[in-house]
């Protein structure tokens, strides 16, 4: 494999790892669509951060994105307390933020130099050419560094507060009874999701970011009953989708991000049908075997 392909596959795998860690908890807490919502609302944060600071650097952009990602989560909670169903609250909030982001972007398009296409649909194919240089020495692709940092951050957060995240996801009442600040950990998770989403879609595109947030976690959910295994498996599934997707894209000459998302879906479909413990086909075969035995007994 040449260095171009290796870079892309490595970036895809790191994105998968970073998204997988937080995505698992979204899947467990039935908030999978919040990832998609946040990936849209952060646009407003990115545009506002630029308009306020005039800086196209990565710092203000991440800060703006994180603020609006969190704001989405806060709005959804507040509307939910007011009696709006959670999915409806998600829909109202992210469409409003996204629309406002697009309007601001169009109004100040001349000054912003933020190409909507680029912000939202960054393409992983360009990753290898966007490198960081320090003192004339190339340190490798920027996306690999940012995603690597986000991956380590997620790993550290989940590793440090593993027990808390686990109890909050499975039994929030018990967590509250134990004195764990459930709301605090909810917002920590939302902040991590926002950071991960914006880092991922800035480097590899929104399509892949949302897919990697949900699909590997869902696949792992079908393969195991233990959270530790689920986290590990989701990273493996995500990395496998990156490899498989890149292979598919190179073979058919199509969008790499799209192919990686499709590959993640394919892996999920395989797990859905053939998971040893709960696959559809496996269950059906097992039932048939049991059925035959019953007939044997009757005869």
């Amino acid at each position: 494999m040449d260095s171009y392909s290796a870079t892309i596959v490595a970036t895809g795998a790191v994105v998968a790892g970073a998204c997988g860690f937080v995505g698992n908890f979204l899947v467990l807490r039935r908030m999978a669509l919040l990832g998609d919502a946040i990936s849209h609302s952060v646009l407003l944060g990115v545009v506002l951060a630029f308009l306020i600071t005039g800086d196209r650097g990565i710092g203000p952009m991440f800060a703006g994105a994180a603020v609006f990602g969190l704001l989405t989560a806060v709005m959804v909670q507040a509307l939910g307390r007011g009696g709006v169903a959670e999915d409806a609250a998600v829909g109202v909030t992210f469409t409003a933020f996204f629309a406002l982001g697009v309007v601001l972007l169009t109004l100040y398009a001349g000054r912003v130099h933020l190409d909507l296409e680029h912000v939202l649909y960054g393409e992983i194919a360009y990753v290898p050419w966007d490198t960081i240089e320090v003192g004339g020495i190339s340190l490798g692709p920027r996306a690999l560094w940012t995603m690597g940092a986000v991956f380590l951050l997620n790993l550290a957060a989940v590793g440090l507060f593993y027990k808390e995240f686990k109890i909050c996801s499975f039994d929030p009442e018990m967590a509250a009874a134990l004195g764990i600040p459930v709301a605090f950990f909810h917002y920590v998770l939302m902040a991590l999701v926002s950071l991960t989403t914006v880092a991922a879609f800035e480097s590899v595109g929104a399509v892949l970011a949302v897919a990697m947030l949900i699909a590997p976690g869902a696949t792992a959910y079908l393969l195991t009953h233990r959270l530790g295994w689920m986290l590990g498996l989701s990273v493996v599934c995500g990395a496998a989708s990156a490899v498989l997707g890149y292979g598919m894209a190179a073979w058919l000459d199509v969008s790499i991000s799209g192919a990686m998302a499709a590959a993640a879906g394919l892996l999920f479909a395989l797990a859905l049908l053939f998971s040893p413990s709960q696959g559809v086909v496996v269950k059906r075969l097992r039932r048939r075997r049991v059925g035959l035995r019953k007939e044997d007994v009757l005869q």
């Binding site: 998609d36 949302v210 699909a215």
Partner: peptide, 23 residues
């Protein structure tokens, strides 16, 4: 047919179908 919840299934279909569309 699985223990995957509706929200997750919706998110999956959204992102994977969109990915296939982009391809």
């Amino acid at each position: 047919h699985s223990r995957v919840k509706e929200e997750t299934a919706l998110g999956l279909v959204l992102s994977v179908f969109f990915g296939i569309g982009v391809v």
